[in-house]
Amino acid sequence: MIKTHSIVSEACELRPHHIGMPVTYKGVTGYLIRYITACEHNLLSLSLDEVRECLAANAPADTDI
């Protein structure tokens, strides 16, 4: 599976225009962002299918995604 996104720790300094979505997925809590390599703050790399699962798991109860 090709990894397309990452969950990074809150300590990761994101670019000013890059806003991560706070998520918890598979026991990992952090910010969901587009995939990054070689970052010490990368907690979990996700495939597109995993991103969909993550977004569904973190969606507000009154929102359809």
Rank of each mutant, 00 (worst) to 15 (best):
V28R: 11
V28T: 15
V28M: 10
T29S: 15
T29Q: 13
T29G: 07
Y31Q: 14
L32G: 08
I33A: 06
I33D: 05
I33P: 04
I33C: 08
I33E: 07
R34F: 15
Y35L: 10
Y35D: 09
Y35P: 04
I36P: 00
I36V: 15
I36N: 01
I36Y: 04
I36G: 03
I36D: 02
T37H: 07
A38F: 10
A38L: 07
A38D: 13
A38T: 05
A38S: 14
C39H: 11
E40T: 07
N42V: 14
L43S: 03
L43F: 02
L44M: 15
S45T: 02
L46D: 05
L46W: 10
L46I: 00
S47L: 00
L48V: 02
L48T: 05
L48A: 08
L48P: 00
L48Y: 13
L48G: 00
D49R: 11
D49V: 05
D49N: 10
D49Q: 11
E50H: 01
E50Q: 14
E50M: 03
V51E: 12
V51C: 08
V51I: 05
R52W: 07
R52F: 06
E53A: 13
C54T: 09
C54K: 06
C54G: 04
L55F: 01
L55Q: 02
L55A: 05
A56F: 09
A56W: 04
A57V: 00
A57L: 10
A59P: 01
P60A: 13
P60T: 01
A61M: 12
D62Y: 14
D62V: 12
T63S: 03
T63H: 05
T63W: 10
